[in-house]
Design a protein around this nucleic acid. Structure first.
Lengths: 206, 206
DNA sequence: TCCGACGCTGGTCTTAGGACCAGCGAGGCA
DNA sequence: TGCCTCGCTGGTCCTAAGACCAGCGTCGGA
């Protein structure tokens, strides 16, 4: 029998991590070498535990999955991304960053185990929706590059806040907020804040 | 020692169910009497296993958590709703339907066990955000009755359209659209169209 | 050193948006 | 019949929003 597949589980929900551990721990060829609840923990665990495969949730507080993918880079462990239908827009960027596969979070546990083995064997695993997202993503840049401040302002727009409210929340002038809004609208190709809010919701921001 | 608290776990994600089972199964005063992956299964399990407390995810395919709540009614088990920040808008309606408590999905497992005991003991458990939603919801009906036309206009707002665009799409004057917007904003208690669009998205409209 | 990106701020201006006043006609119900 | 709801429309008015002009200072990289 071969060496077991060393697995790292990265998800910000303890319940999900425990569930995955419970299922995957039953697989004789898997060795769960660690867990992480956010991106920084994940990177530390990758360095320390040296997994073969990382199960990675893209949407986490702080350093998120995309950042983890980018920092792991090409030479590190295979990354199997746990995603959901509302996160499909993140797929192209994640592929670009080196993700080896995508599975939906509601995947059957046996299918998940199979997916882990598939990516560990060096293949790339894409869900049909991910393929569709790739095709779309090939036509346009996957995610416009907002500055940190623009992202922050967008997040608050996506909470329904006015410019004045955002200005108060960030401790800057309303004029400054307007500037960021004007800039971010152009970047995401939205005509107004309503469209921006919708964009943000559909891109998992806010 | 008292009778154990009979628990039913309702969530469409097997991983979540397993994770909850793994945590809660360790509690000596809990007896997990079943699991369900959707609303219909949940209702069948409630009838068959007769739980004291149901852990219920509101957002499920098919018969969702709200429908489950409504069908369980007042005489049935206590329902502790598993929610997330993006689902807070569902809170007033769920309370109206009899939910005994709300916890975020990323809750610490010990806190979750405590929450279960709390609702089992007959108390109502509300997160601070849920209280805020209640206060808003207490002043207004949980699910506003929009006129057909208002719903139509809201759907188009949720697609990012301006009043002028909506007027063209519906073949009415912009003035008429403005009237509908003013009326629907008041009904859903939104300050502006951006909030209305977000409301619509979170209520599965558009 | 120069240049670009970033965040911040001011100014001017136009207009879309929304509140609130009013009214009409049609349909349904007590 | 009277009242309510609905959809439609007009008017007035104020302001939030956004475009586009400008500038400052800081930081990092070539």
């Amino acid at each position: 029998m071969n060496e077991p597949i060393r697995l790292l589980i990265v998800d910000d929900h303890p319940v999900v991590r425990q569930g995955l551990r419970a299922y995957l721990g039953l697989e004789a060829d898997f060795d769960i070498v660690g867990e992480a609840g956010d991106g920084e923990e994940a990177l530390a665990a990758v360095a320390e535990a040296r997994p073969d495969v990382v199960l990675l949730d893209l949407k986490m507080p702080g350093t998120d999955g995309q950042a983890v993918l980018e920092r792991i880079g090409a030479g590190g462990p295979r990354v199997l991304v746990l995603t959901s239908a509302t996160e499909d827009t993140r797929v192209p960027a994640a592929i670009e960053a080196g993700a080896a596969g995508f599975v939906y979070k509601d995947i059957d546990p046996d299918a998940l185990a199979a997916a882990i083995r598939t990516v560990h064997a060096g293949q790339t695993l894409l869900s049909p929706t991910a393929v569709r997202g790739l095709m779309n993503g090939g036509a346009a840049p996957p995610a416009p590059d907002l500055t940190p401040r623009e992202s922050q302002v967008l997040g608050l727009i996506a909470k329904g806040q006015t410019n004045r409210q955002i200005a108060r929340a960030l401790g800057v002038s309303e004029k400054t907020v307007k500037t960021h809004v004007t800039n971010l609208l152009r970047r995401i190709d939205a005509a107004d804040r309503t469209q921006a809010a919708l964009w943000a919701v559909h891109h998992g921001i806010g």
